[in-house]
Design a protein around this nucleic acid. Structure first.
Length: 468
RNA sequence: GGCGACGUGGCCAAGUUGGCAAGGCAAGGGUCUGCAAAACCCUGAUCACGGGUUCGAGUCCCGUCGUCGCCUCCA
């Protein structure tokens, strides 16, 4: 079965073929760290985490690079406003972001390069572009990329230079040959972070760091380049222009872009100010809840984000986890139609899951397959299937959920483990109370345990319990 | 104005090359139950609108309306 991926460059789904068999080189644009990250950033990170996990599930070795842009205008501006050192400010938000990634169960990238650590590579690349006539130093100390020299400029975003000019909100800059030329290197003003260069002290422009980091860590050509679809233009367009002009080779084979998260019908963004920070979200919800929201729709489409959808995702996650509960007390069924049906569904789910994911990471379809297995497990449990029968199906559920990055089986800590004999004891006592029809007391135990995170479920055969 | 995407039951949504419309949440009815919870069973869609191609279209083509993104920093 072959994986097909939608490629922004060709606007089609294409069979996935890597440059090197069995190996995927994937570069995903990370955040510019000048402020707290919001759930939109988290969405992007989750999308590419899911893609990465599935590629690994398919047997690929994935070199996953996610950068941090830790020097740019916004960082400097913010730091100046607070009277702080820009690099220190960036450092702080970077560490915060790292922590969010852990909380969201995002696998660490193979490498997290930072713009400020790649200055030599950047300078070398800018010089190379100047040497080839693709760039020119301007009187003000900036270095610009010469878009007119790059004949296929605009191929990713489907724009033509002349159309964009007609749009005409571009400021005319005396230093530029063409209004669309963009900075590779920016001369620094006094008090700004600066590095020495052949063109005087300055810092990298916005797009060049990604090109340089790609080159340094993944090579001249890569398999997947990802990011939010708001980066298609100008960021990725400019990256292509720089890198391909420099190397003379096609840069990334597949350009993959996630849709924007929508809050009350609008894109969540810093400039609009309709933000929900990752910190705020995680203070109230399990990280897997956000992941469920991402999984429930296509990564390329806008993602609806509001309280109702959050609640829905929360319930859906509970349903997945609920399927992992053990067999009914005394259940001993190990053969017969319910058992066979569960086996069949387990196989069907694995197959359906892969088919869905192979189709451009159709996570919503894959989730549907998981829920089919959930139903089958619950049916088997109701039919009295023994744990030994449920276990393989449940393990498949946990495994496939894991491919999507979901933590379905919450880890029980040492303390929880230690509490189990006492919970069992309370259940025994309560069973006796129920035999004597002392409902008030038995309900009290159930309510108090609930408060402590232990859920009791009574059935004809007896009572089961699980952590909330 | 230019480029692009989307519009599927109350809500979130899937839908390979066109062939009887997944799944989750919510709602109603039922089974089980001392009650509760969970689970199971049952119930619902003229696929924005109008044309066209076709034996047959949510799926292809044209048009209309609406929503959103990019074109300036943005995941």
């Amino acid at each position: 079965m072959t994986l097909r991926i939608y490629n922004t460059l060709t606007r089609k789904k294409e069979p996935f073929e890597t440059l090197e068999p069995g190996v995927v080189r994937m570069y995903v644009c990370g955040p510019t760290v000048y402020d707290k990250a919001h759930v939109g950033h988290a969405m992007s990170v989750l999308v590419f985490d899911i893609i990465r996990r599935y590629l690994e599930y398919k047997g690929y070795t994935v070199f996953h690079v996610m950068n941090y842009t830790d020097v740019d205008d916004k960082i400097i501006q913010r730091a100046n406003a607070q009277g702080r050192d820009p690099l220190e400010l960036a450092e702080e938000y970077m560490h915060e972001f790292d922590q969010h990634l852990r909380d969201l169960n995002v696998l660490p990238a193979t490498i997290n390069p930072r713009a400020t650590q790649e200055i030599d590579q950047i300078i070398q690349m800018v010089q190379g572009l100047i040497d080839k006539g693709y760039a020119y130093p301007a009187p003000n100390g900036d270095v610009y990329f010469r878009v007119r020299r790059d004949e296929d400029y605009g191929k990713l975003s489907g724009r033509k230079l002349d159309d964009m000019r007609a749009g005409a909100r571009i400021e005319v800059d005396e230093n530029k040959e063409d209004p669309m030329d963009f900075a590779l290197w920016k001369a620094s003003k006094p008090g700004e972070p600066a590095w020495d260069s052949p063109w005087g002290p300055g810092r990298p422009g916005w797009h060049i760091e990604c090109s340089a980091m790609n080159l340094a860590h993944l090579g001249e050509q890569i398999d997947i380049h990802g990011g939010g679809n708001d980066l298609i233009f100008p960021h990725h367009e400019n990256e292509i222009a720089q890198t391909e002009s420099y190397t003379g080779k096609p840069f990334a084979r597949y350009w993959v872009h996630n849709g924007m998260l929508q809050l009350s019908g609008e894109k969540m963004s810093k400039s609009i100010g309709n933000l929900v920070t990752i910190e705020d979200f995680l203070a109230e919800h399990d990280g897997d809840v956000l992941r469920m929201m991402v999984l429930n729709s296509s990564y390329r489409n806008p993602l609806t984000f509001n309280d109702e959808v959050i609640a829905q995702a929360e319930k859906a996650l509970e349903r997945l986890r609920g399927a992992l509960k053990s067999a009914l007390p005394g259940a001993s069924l190990t053969e017969g139609e319910p058992v066979e049906a569960l086996k069949r569904q387990t196989e069907a789910t694995r197959k359906g899951f892969e088919e869905a994911m192979d189709d451009d990471f159709n996570t919503a379809g894959a989730l549907g397959e998981l829920f089919a297995l959930v139903k089958a497990i619950n049916q088997a449990r109701d039919a009295g299937a023994a744990d030994s029968v449920l276990a393989p199906a449940q393990q498949t559920l946990v495994d496939l959920g894991g491919v999507l990055g979901l933590r379905l089986r919450p880890e029980t800590g040492q303390a929880d483990k230690a509490a189990e004999p006492f919970i069992e004891l309370l259940l025994e006592v309560r069973a006796e109370l129920r035999r004597q029809k002392l409902w008030a007391l038995s309900d009290l135990i159930r309510d108090r345990l609930k408060d402590l995170g232990v859920v009791l479920e009574d059935s004809k055969a007896g009572t089961t319990w699980h952590w909330e």
